[in-house]
Computed example of a mutant assay.
Amino acid sequence: MEAFFRDGMRFTAVDEGAADVGTIVLLHGFPQRSQSWTDTSRHLVAAGYRVIAADQRGYTPQARPRSRRAYRLNELVADVVALLDTAGVDRAHLVGHDWGGGVAWMFAAARPDRLHSLTVVSAPHPRAVVRAMLTSRQLVQAWHVGFFQLPWLPEAAIRWRGGRIAVALLKRSGLSEQMAREYTDRLLGDPGCLAAALRWYRAMPLDMAAGLKTGAITVPTTYVWSTDDIAIGRRAAELTSRWVTGRFDFKVLEGVSHWIPEQAPETLAALILDRARSVR
């Protein structure tokens, strides 16, 4: 499967391996694309899994609606349903990083019938984030979320001098120079991509009530957090277990930044496989 369709939109995807033991679906975050999973996916395919890494809405030209309402969580969840249906997969092991993790939490709450297991990387459960904002420095750490709500200014800042500020901030958060430049160039070089990627953040106020009502997660779940993540504090990470009633593992990667799929792909793949194998 090279693509899947929903509501007239075409989403690209990387589909590798044979489903000898199951299917793993990988959801990327901001400002990544499906290629951020390349190194992790290699280990999963070698273990006998079919691995599908999708380019989510906004990150591919033929699935780039202009309304921020089109980026609400219910729409993002429906995209994953369309992916599974097109791939002919009844139930999968779902993995999400960053914004992909936010979609994964909501998908697991809304459609547990389509999942064998859940692995979320970096992004805590939405209700854990809200609680942490009231009891820790989480609100300060997530300053960029508020900044991205502003009109035109975030786009101007990211575009300034060919993305110089964006590259510097991504490097400060833990990405290599090469990856920071590659992600920035993709955002700026693909017309409409930057604005679409920011619509994920600008739809957040529309989803506040839905996030606060996110139900308990009943499927077997692993949550992976890293100590050098400058955007997600320990408080939000540790609170996540309160909203998981299924089997739950909390894994902490010492000395790893927010960019776990890029920085620790082998370790992450091992954790994903441990979770997937636990529900055979």
Rank of each mutant, 00 (worst) to 15 (best):
E75D: 10
A276P: 00
R6G: 03
V14R: 10
G163S: 01
D55H: 05
S278G: 12
A270E: 15
V80R: 03
R64Y: 06
D249F: 00
V77Y: 09
A47V: 05
Q149S: 14
R68D: 13
A157Q: 09
W37K: 06
L175S: 00
D15F: 10
H93R: 10
M179W: 13
V89T: 14
V103R: 10
G22V: 09
V279F: 08
Y223F: 09
F250E: 13
A197Q: 04
D98S: 00
S226I: 15
R131Y: 00
T12S: 08
P31M: 09
L198S: 05
W243I: 06
M179C: 05
Q141R: 10
A203N: 15
M1C: 14
R247Y: 13
P191S: 11
D274E: 10
G22L: 09
D7C: 15
D228E: 12
A70I: 03
G22F: 15
A19C: 11
L198E: 04
P31N: 02
V103L: 08
Q138W: 04
V145E: 01
I260Q: 07
I158V: 14
D207K: 07
A180G: 06
Y223H: 08
M204E: 14
I272A: 01
S67A: 15
V224D: 05
M1W: 12
I24N: 09
D79Q: 05
G17R: 00
S173F: 14
T222P: 03
V219S: 06
D55Y: 06
L76F: 12
D228N: 05
T38N: 14
G189Y: 12
F11T: 02
R69W: 08
H93S: 08
V77I: 14
Q138F: 01
D185C: 07
L44E: 02
G48I: 15
G255Y: 02
P31Q: 01
H97Y: 02
R6P: 01
G8Q: 11
G88L: 05
Q32R: 01
V219P: 10
A276N: 00
P261Y: 01
L169S: 07
A87D: 03
H43L: 15
I24R: 00
Q149H: 10
L44W: 09
R127M: 11
V25Y: 04
G146C: 04
D190M: 08
P65L: 10
I260V: 13
A269L: 02
I230D: 11
M9E: 13
G96Y: 00
L134Q: 13
F5N: 01
L198D: 04
D85T: 13
H97S: 02
Q263N: 07
H97N: 07
T218M: 08
T86P: 00
G215K: 01
R275K: 03
L83I: 04
P265H: 03
R33V: 15
A209I: 03
E262L: 10
F250N: 15
H116Q: 06
D274Y: 04
V51M: 11
A123D: 03
N74K: 13
L273G: 04
A270K: 01
D79S: 02
V129T: 09
I217H: 14
D190S: 11
V129G: 01
